[in-house]
């Protein structure tokens, strides 16, 4: 048996080597770097340097606030929207289901730069279609890029557009795993369709909803593309800067890898903590 295992590990060795060098070591290394002052040459060991700065850094708390704000507002809205989309996709009344499924999933495969450019055009103050639509119903134009609140809203709209369909497809798979006869039994029990949704569909879909929420929380904690490309590096004035963007700015603009590592570990820790709390809150009774 031991000999067999050794053979297996020899086959796995090339992968394990690459995995260790490019995956495990950077994780350990970045953790160690977070305890070093990296803006001096050579780097020096200073355990409280970056972590101490983090606690008192207004830029970090601004990024944390923005990230959590997006998380608290955008994730529930997107998951709710995804559930509605999934239920509609699952309706036997819907024709051309395959086409809708593709349309819902398409935003995920569209290039990030292309989609960001289109969003910038759509939300442009002077000639964007969104402001034209607002004007057409008598509402004033909104300067989506110069004010913090509209800029945050824009980020949330963009992220929701991009990921709601993806989550809807996952939820659709969950919906399709609920047996039809459970609904038939409920129908014979004289339970209305609306009550069936709230008392049967949602509880049975809960594990999938939690899964989508966890994925979304992790994704939002790492949010980078939209504030970088759409609101131009977290603008206006850092109003949409997220933790991901702060990490990038510190690590790759200021070359302060120690501080960037501390931010990265904080993001990972927060994502794990929020996910654990959520899993605990939605735990199935034994």
């Amino acid at each position: 048996m031991r000999h067999q295992n050794a053979t297996a590990y020899r086959f796995l060795a090339p992968y394990l080597l690459i995995f260790s060098v490019f995956w495990v070591w950077p994780i350990i290394s970045s953790f160690l770097i977070s305890f070093q002052a990296t803006r001096t040459v050579p780097w020096r060991w200073a355990p409280t340097f970056n972590w101490g700065r983090l606690i008192g850094d207004p830029a970090f708390f601004n990024a944390l606030k923005n990230t959590l704000l997006i998380l608290v507002i955008q994730v529930p809205v997107m998951i709710s929207l995804a559930i509605v989309m999934a239920v509609l996709l699952n309706s036997p009344l819907l024709k051309a289901r395959g086409l809708y499924r593709f349309a819902f999933f398409a935003p995920v495969v569209v290039g990030e730069v292309a989609y960001s450019a289109v969003f910038r055009l759509m939300f442009n103050l002077n000639f964007g279609i969104i402001n034209k639509l607002l004007n057409s119903v008598g509402l004033p134009s909104i300067d989506w890029f110069s004010n913090v609140t509209p800029a945050m809203a824009l980020i949330m709209i963009a992220v929701t557009w991009r990921w709601a369909g993806y989550n809807a497809i996952i939820l659709l798979a969950g919906l399709q795993s609920i047996p039809d006869d459970v609904y038939e039994a409920a129908t014979l029990d004289r339970v209305s369709k609306v009550k069936q949704f709230f008392y049967i569909t949602l509880p049975l879909l809960k594990p999938i909803i939690v899964f989508c929420a966890v994925l979304s929380i992790i994704g939002t904690m790492q949010l980078f593309t939209e504030p970088f490309l759409i609101t131009e590096r977290g603008g206006p004035g850092g109003g949409t800067e997220t933790l991901g963007l702060l990490l990038y700015r510190q690590g790759f603009r200021s070359l302060n890898f120690g501080y960037a590592s501390a931010v990265a570990y904080t993001m990972a820790g927060l994502a794990i903590a929020i996910t654990l709390v959520q899993l605990w809150l939605t735990k199935e009774p034994k």
Binding site: D181, V182, E184, A185, R190, L204
Partner: peptide
């Protein structure tokens, strides 16, 4: 729902997230 019938399904079709008591009373409660 209005035919005054009750049906027992081949697959039982119980509500998996409810206790036996909730399964029995669900229709009446709703």
């Amino acid at each position: 729902a209005e035919r005054g019938i009750a049906m027992v399904f081949q697959s039982y079709a119980l509500y998996p997230h409810m206790t036996v008591e909730q399964n029995l009373s669900f229709g009446l409660r709703m």
